[in-house]
Simulated scan of single mutants.
Amino acid sequence: MAHKKSFLPTKTCAHCGRPYSWRKKWEKNWDEVRYCSERCRRESKKSKSGI
C-alpha cells in the first residue's frame, strides 16, 4: 500500500535550486540541511574554493 507524502515539509536546494522533501535520515537536523544530495553539497564546496 503506497502512502501519499504530500504533507512532508519541503525546501529548495542551495546549489541546484530544486525542491526536495524531508527524509527520515534528516529527522534530527532538518533545520541545518541545505542541499538535496551529497553531490550538490560537494559541488557547492568546489565552487566556493574557486577550483
Rank of each mutant, 00 (worst) to 15 (best):
L8M: 04
A2C: 07
T10R: 04
Y20C: 03
E43D: 13
R23S: 09
A2H: 14
K5F: 12
S21W: 07
E27M: 10
K24P: 05
C36Q: 01
R34I: 11
W26A: 02
A2E: 12
K5L: 15
S44Y: 04
C13A: 00
S47C: 09
R42A: 12
S37Q: 03
H15Y: 08
C40G: 05
E38W: 01
Y20M: 01
K5I: 09
K45P: 07
S6N: 15
E32T: 13
K4N: 15
I51G: 12
A2K: 07
R18N: 14
G50F: 07
K28G: 05
K45Q: 14
E32N: 15
W22K: 00
R34F: 07
T12R: 03
R18K: 15
S37V: 06
Y35H: 10
M1P: 11
P19K: 09
V33A: 06
G17S: 07
K28H: 06
K28R: 13
K45S: 10
H3K: 11
A2Y: 13
H3E: 08
R41A: 14
R42Q: 14
M1I: 11
P9F: 05
S49G: 10
K46P: 06
H15V: 07
C13G: 01
K24H: 07
W30S: 02
K28V: 02
K45D: 09
W30A: 01
E43H: 09
P9L: 05
E43S: 10
C16A: 09
K24I: 08
E27V: 12
S47W: 08
S21P: 04
R34E: 11
K46S: 12
E32S: 13
S44V: 06
S6F: 09
